[in-house]
Design a protein around this nucleic acid. Structure first.
Lengths: 211, 211, 211, 211
DNA sequence: CATGAATGAGACTTCATTCAT
DNA sequence: GATGAATGAAGTCTCATTCAT
């Protein structure tokens, strides 16, 4: 009588994280409504009923995914933002290069998809992301631009729009990778995009003498 | 055509278009899975059963929405692309300004949302859009960049990435308007964004002498 | 190709009553929690989904059962109560005999069972019955007793307790029939019970001279 | 017995009784189907799993409740019944007064509720109660009535129906307290009910000369 | 013995689809 | 053609029961 595998194992502490990880995958792939709890449970390696030991409803799991996926990154985001110093001309290439390095190995794609796809069905989700992550970033970048303008490094212009200009192409790269690459589109080289964008946009933003 | 044609006689032929219009709204708001045929029927002003006189399944309606929303615009897109001529430095501001004018009154936001949200559930959808709309645009823009580079107007760099750089901020604006403005974020001024982006990016792209 | 039975038939107006009737049966037999919508649907001759065309939730159906079972009888009850006149000694035998005739062919048993069984889980139910049906009856009977006492027909005593004394044995009969007869207990002869109870209790209640 | 017996050592033997007590509460409040084992375990102060050390299934616990709640009272009931002697006119007030004293502090309400509510779902329950408790009582009372009739104390009439007449109002009082008092109805004074009922019904039952 | 995390069958509920009218 | 009542498969959620600890 070979000792069989136990049918299950107690993992009280590890479960929530496993469930959230599985749920992020499924919600990102399918969207909230099309996601099946069966699938989440299967990927988390638990039974359907076990989900309800840790979360009360499907929506609850969704909120957990949203919050737990942002929150730990918020510190990073703020640290990065606060850590900016030095000449604007040096900053932009560094930051974009960092993004280019981080993006491909982070769940940025799935997260963006979730936010975009479910913003109407879950407005709190959009508000949370806006307030906690996006707006701080935009304001930080805008502040750096404004400071650089004050120092005479950067030419006149709306700092917030400059933030859009800096980030937009990277966002487009993320969506491209998420949406079109899986159906055969040519992949984006984030490193190259970051380098070229830093170089060209910066050249256009800096005061001519400063270049 | 001038007389005797009672209005409601046209309904029969108009129905599919009305259904598709209603469906675009609902799919864009809710996503495919969360969209209810009841709701689509209600907004189209028909009974639920009537949908099945024109379409076989919910997915069918979705495909109709996707196709009929792209197809008529494809001609425009191609015309715009083919119509590009003149100096690159003149072209960019014009094109971005046009986009800025068109975007706010087009269903660009909903469409982007649908594509992003349902790309995994309906890969054909992503492929269709890529092949028919996005890739042609990117290639056209890339071609114009390459031509400008050949003429010595634009500095060296990957033309496709330049396309990303040009379009990215506008895309970001669209998503911002779609996702964050409804929950209280400050709106984007597309005109200003287009103007500033054209100016700065162009300044960075053009050969220094050409500026 | 024989023309088969249609799979179903439209019965929009008749459905709610049929559902409520089926539900009364099932709720009375099983109690709220143990009642299965499957069973209710089957007995009402509809699909499970059809229940939701007419009622929003299981609880909704339960409320409909409760209300629609009382309400139509309330008029009768009040009419009977208001119609009481004449000497108390004539009234009691008549009323009890009427009850004895009505009870066996009414859903009195199931209703009592439902109220008793679910009073804790659905306090509104108990309150509704108390306020709308039981209390009015008790007060009416109490009032008749008090009037008879004032006329010197009935001896002193709490009129409300007299109401309990009059009704109690009939209630016990109802519960006996509901609970014990199905498992083999000897049935109750309501007519005989009513007759004997009217006779004996009345004899005890009336003033000695009046007898 | 006096010393060294640590309190908690007794727990092991006390457990089944504690579980049954908790279960009686919960089953009486909710009914069998709506009762949660979680709740029973909580009120008994044990874990859910522990229930299964003493009972095999939920139904098992229910049976234990039913049996252990009746059985110990059966002796009392029989003792009371067998102890009846003397004149019928003296007996009735005594017995009813005893009931009035015992009822309020016994779980009579919950038990009646359980029996009424679950009689269809658990016919054995109804049969058990009928055979072991109710029928003996009815027969004893009926026997006493018959004996009194034989002695010429009580007028003619079906002895079993007399038993219904005697007990019915008290039963109605129990149900009133159980069902309507919690939702605001005026409470029943069992003492007064017993006194008045004994007096009036007896007056009606006794042979005129005997009064 | 005791716990309580984990299971899985089964309940209520939703909604795309069908079809009598 | 058009309607909307009706269906039934499938999804979320509950909870008696089991079993690793």
């Amino acid at each position: 009588m070979l000792k069989g595998e136990p049918r299950w194992r107690r993992r009280k502490e590890a479960r929530p994280a496993e469930i959230v990880a599985a749920a992020l995958e499924v919600f990102a792939e399918k969207g909230f409504a099309a996601a099946r709890l069966d699938e989440i449970a299967r990927r988390a390696g638990v039974s359907k009923g076990a989900l309800y030991l840790y979360y009360e409803t499907k929506e609850d799991i969704f909120h957990a995914v949203v919050t737990q996926t942002v929150t730990p990154r918020l510190a990073q985001v703020r640290a990065m933002a606060d850590g900016f110093s030095g000449r604007f001309a040096d900053l932009v290439p560094t930051v974009l290069a960092t993004l280019a390095r981080v993006i491909p190995e982070s769940p940025a794609g799935p997260i963006v998809k979730m936010i975009v796809g479910e913003s109407r069905n879950f407005p709190q989700l959009a508000r949370y992301w806006h307030d906690e992550a996006i707006l701080p970033m935009v304001e930080t970048v805008g502040g750096l631009v404004a400071a650089a303008q004050a120092r005479g490094e950067v030419r006149a212009g709306d700092p917030r729009l400059f933030a859009f200009q800096l980030a937009g192409p990277m966002l487009m790269g993320v969506l491209w990778r998420e949406v079109f690459t899986p159906v055969g589109a040519e992949p984006v080289d984030f490193q190259a995009l970051a380098r070229q964008h830093a170089e060209t946009l910066l050249a256009g933003m800096l005061m001519e003498k400063a270049a």
